[in-house]
């Protein structure tokens, strides 16, 4: 059987194309399969691509710092991990290409974060305030915080 693409070389590579509505059997020669990017010598996973891209360290990377968690861009490139939610904003101008290469995309189009009351975060904040009030023996304040906590559904504090 000859290659569907060049119709010259014998087809040695068969695969089912499921990108369209119908499943098509495709027959290609090694060369055309490679040209079409269907097979490549190095198939890198997103993790491997990330590791490769992180190696390009610039001198000034040590000076670019996330003010919240103090992670530098060079540390990000060393570990391949963000230190906090704010890092992305700080490093964004320098890692746009990296994200595009790793993810094959540069824009989130999925579900969005829904704004919520963050009730638990508030409860933990109030509990901490209560602890401090009790430490200072500010019992009136403590009672107020307890009432607040009660309205949020927290008993026995």
């Amino acid at each position: 059987m000859l290659c569907d693409n060049c119709k010259k070389n014998p087809a040695t590579f068969f695969y089912k194309d499921v990108s369209g509505e119908q499943i098509k059997e495709v027959h290609l020669c090694e060369e055309c399969a490679r040209k079409k990017g269907i097979i490549s010598d190095k198939k890198l996973s997103p993790h491997e691509i990330l590791q490769k891209l992180l190696k390009s360290v610039e001198k000034e990377d040590g000076q670019i710092v996330c003010p919240i968690c103090l992670l530098t861009l060079s540390e990000f490139k060393k570990f391949g991990r963000f230190g906090c939610a704010n890092c992305l904003k700080v490093f964004e101008p320098y890692i746009k290409t990296l994200i595009r290469e790793v993810q094959n995309s540069e824009k989130h189009i999925g579900k969005k974060a829904k704004p919520g009351g963050r009730r638990i975060v508030e409860i933990f904040r109030l509990k901490e305030e209560l602890r401090r009030a009790l430490e200072k023996e500010a019992y009136e304040d403590a009672a107020k915080i307890r009432d607040q906590l009660k309205t949020m559904g927290v008993e026995n504090v």
Binding site: A85, H108, K114, G116, G117, R118, R119, V121
Partner: peptide
């Protein structure tokens, strides 16, 4: 809703 997720408009 209870905890609040880290989210970025673009990413």
């Amino acid at each position: 809703q209870e905890l609040g997720y880290a989210y970025n408009e673009n990413y």
